[in-house]
Nucleic acid binder design. Sequence first.
DNA 1: CCGCATCCAGTGCGATACTG
DNA 2: CAGTATCGCACTGGATGCGG
Lengths: 127, 127
Amino acid sequence: MTLTKMLPRLPIERTLGIISGRWKAVIIHVLLEGPKRTCEIETQITGISQKVLIQQLKALEQHGIVWRKTSLEEPQRVDYSLTPLGLSLEPLISSLQDWGQQHAQEQGDAHRLISCDAVVRSLDGQR
Amino acid sequence: MTLTKMLPRLPIERTLGIISGRWKAVIIHVLLEGPKRTCEIETQITGISQKVLIQQLKALEQHGIVWRKTSLEEPQRVDYSLTPLGLSLEPLISSLQDWGQQHAQEQGDAHRLISCDAVVRSLDGQR
DNA sequence: CCGCATCCAGTGCGATACTG
DNA sequence: CAGTATCGCACTGGATGCGG
């Protein structure tokens, strides 16, 4: 069940171990808007499957990032929200967002290996 | 050759796609100290193998984060340094570092599911 | 010293179908 | 609606050995 995978020792890796994963950062980003139901998150993130969503949420829950509240009402209802610890990731998520945006506009959407390589070539005449 | 894997569209994912990977963030962190030779990086990061190091460096190079400079001296010598783009990641890496440290000391090193669950239980009496 | 090729195990995650 | 079970594939990254 893979359950509770060990977190790495180094702080950097530790953080990455928590927020990296196909959808985790996006989920946190969405939850920063406020608590959401499972299905709300699902429809808000295009391309994620229910199974994977729940899977990632569970991992986040285990790391103390999100909080899961079940209501035993009629149609089963579950709300997810960020814990204080999760909220403390806000600046980090923003940074990711900002840097990514900047990065995207610096180079077109295509891979800018070309331009970079060109610089290298002109600078040191090899490769 | 997997070469130049597509970066995701969303900014957040884009950033993560670049810095996540078993050692990438750590490598960037190390290179923030200044340019290093391959073997220097290798000895400075415990647990990484040469192959993987080079592999990750190559990925970073392709994303325009590091710059690879070869000197055709005698014993072959290669230096890696951060590009301006790579340097611009500095605040981000710091954030990762800081958050991880904070997180590590809040909870012991063991998994703190327990304490978190306890809170949950006391707060809403279910689960 | 630096890098590449090959081989291989673990696993992240997607698709699908089923329970309550 | 929420979650679980099963299956399968593709990819990451570790070990090792070769070549420049």
